[in-house]
Each structure stands twice: as structure tokens, then as C-alpha cells.
């Protein structure tokens, strides 16, 4: 080889004698450049640098403005002997705390969050088609599926929270049915039906795996928002449901930020 590179003529002569061709693979696809211009790219410098600098300035200035006008809350020094009413977790865990109101802790605070996190991690492995990568909602149909699922959850979940709180069947039937059935099985079944229902509607139109995952993620995401808002804004003293603007006493849910 080293000899050949030293003497290129000998190399090419040698190659022309021995070069053979073989068919490696047949690919079913349009030729790469058909109907496509060269990739639409620009130099990162300075455009990207300027865009990032601008966004940094805007975000920082907005934070600064807010910090000038709104003070971070500070209550009295911590006192383990006096419980605050209501005692709330930080706002991003209020969805979890709200869920605790609707069933057994092991179901609501352990099983369900575990399932949710595992589902979110598994998303790219459930839907591993490359179709629609980099396109919002993949298609018009995807957009419709997301919209209808979101509306459905926005109606059903607040209703569920409201009904389960004001007509606490689980409390009324306590003692008449096994606790396990009442606090774990039935709430799990109700949640299961709420999640499965849009899938049953979808399944009739032969959805792609992307559309199934999109429905499930929308159920999860919008439910998380509903439960978080319910816990954060609509729970007052005694962890009862109130309108955020109509809280008893001088409690304001915003003080918990």
C-alpha cells in the first residue's frame, strides 16, 4: 500500500485491473435531491449568538421587573407545633396532593405517579416511527386529536374532582365495602375508564402509534394541569374547594408561591 501511494500511476493501473462491482442493496425511496433545493442553512455566527443574547436580555429584564414589583413570600419562623391551614406542598406538587384527596395514598401518590413517569420515559420507544418528526402535531388529524382530547379532559377531570369532593361516596360507603375496594380499586377503575375512553373512540379510525401516544400524553398533560390548578388555586382552609377569589378568612392561594 505504501508503495502504491508513492507511485500513483502504478496504483491506478493496478486498481483498474482488479476493480469489481457488486450490487449491495436495493433501496425503495425517491432519489435524494428530487424536487428539493440545497438545505436551507445559514452561518450560526452571528445570527444565533445575537438571538440568544436577545432572549437572555428579555428573560432577565422581565424577571427583574417582576422582582421589583412582587416580593417573594415570607411567613413567620417555622413552628412545628402550629400547623398552617391549609398546609400545601410547593405548587408543582399540588397535583399530587390533590390526587391524594381522591383515593388511597399508595394508589394516588405512588402507583399513579410511577406509571406516569414510566409512560413519559417510554414514549419514544412506544412510538418509534420517524414520521412527523419536527412537525407540530404531525398532521391536521393529529392537531384535531390533541384538541378534542384536551377539551374532553378539561371537562371530565374538573367534574371528577368536584363530584368526588362534594358527594364523597367513598366516605359514605366506608365500612359497608372493603376499604381496598373503595379506596383503591374503584378510583383506579374510574381513572382507567377516563383514560381509555378517548382511545376507544380513536381506535375505530385505525390510529398510528403516534396518534395513540399523542392522545395519552394529552390526557396526562392536561390532567396534570387541571389537578395542579385545582390543588393550588381552588383549595382553601381545611383543604376544601372554594373559588380562588372567594376564600374564607384572609387566605389567598397566591401567598403559597
Amino acid at each position: 500500500m505504501t508503495e502504491n501511494t508513492k507511485n500513483p500511476e502504478a496504483f491506478s493501473e493496478d486498481a483498474s485491473k482488479t476493480k469489481t462491482y457488486s450490487l449491495v442493496e436495493l433501496v425503495k425511496a425517491p432519489t435524494t435531491m428530487v424536487d428539493k433545493g440545497p438545505d436551507d442553512t445559514i452561518f450560526s455566527f452571528p445570527v444565533v449568538a445575537i438571538m440568544e443574547l436577545l432572549l437572555t436580555l428579555v428573560v432577565t429584564v422581565l424577571l427583574l421587573m417582576m422582582s421589583l414589583f412582587v416580593n417573594a413570600p415570607l411567613e413567620e419562623i417555622a413552628n412545628p407545633n402550629t400547623t398552617t391551614d391549609p398546609a400545601k406542598a410547593p405548587w408543582y406538587f399540588m397535583g399530587l396532593q390533590e390526587m391524594l384527596e381522591h383515593g388511597h395514598p399508595t394508589l394516588m401518590a405512588v402507583a399513579m405517579p410511577t406509571i406516569m413517569v414510566l409512560f413519559v420515559i417510554a414514549i419514544p420507544y412506544i412510538d418509534n416511527s420517524r414520521l412527523g418528526s419536527g412537525v407540530w402535531f404531525t398532521s391536521k388529524r393529529g392537531k384535531r386529536i390533541t384538541l378534542y382530547t384536551a377539551i374532553y379532559i378539561l371537562v371530565v377531570m374538573p367534574l371528577y374532582i368536584y363530584i368526588d369532593t362534594t358527594f364523597p361516596l367513598r366516605e359514605l360507603l366506608r365500612g359497608q365495602m372493603p376499604d381496598f375496594l373503595l379506596q383503591s380499586v374503584i378510583p383506579a377503575l374510574i381513572m382507567g375508564v377516563i383514560v381509555i375512553l378517548p382511545l376507544l373512540v380513536l381506535i375505530r379510525s385505525k390510529p398510528t402509534s403516534r396518534e395513540v401516544v399523542m392522545t395519552l400524553f394529552t390526557v396526562l398533560f392536561v390532567s396534570a394541569v387541571v389537578f395542579t390548578l385545582a390543588g393550588f388555586l381552588f383549595r382553601g382552609p381545611g383543604f376544601e374547594l372554594y373559588w380562588p377569589w372567594d376564600m374564607p378568612g384572609n387566605y389567598s392561594p397566591w401567598d403559597n408561591l
Binding site: 413570600p73 415570607l74 411567613e75 412545628p80 400547623t83 398552617t84 398546609a87 400545601k88 406542598a89
Partner: peptide, 13 residues
């Protein structure tokens, strides 16, 4: 901050 808000939020959490 170790105020009531912090203490009870972490206790609940």
C-alpha cells in the same frame, strides 16, 4: 427560608 410556608410545604411534600 425556614418559615411556616417552607416548613409545612416540605412536611406535606
Amino acid at each position: 427560608p425556614w418559615d411556616q410556608l417552607a416548613y409545612w410545604a416540605i412536611t406535606v411534600g
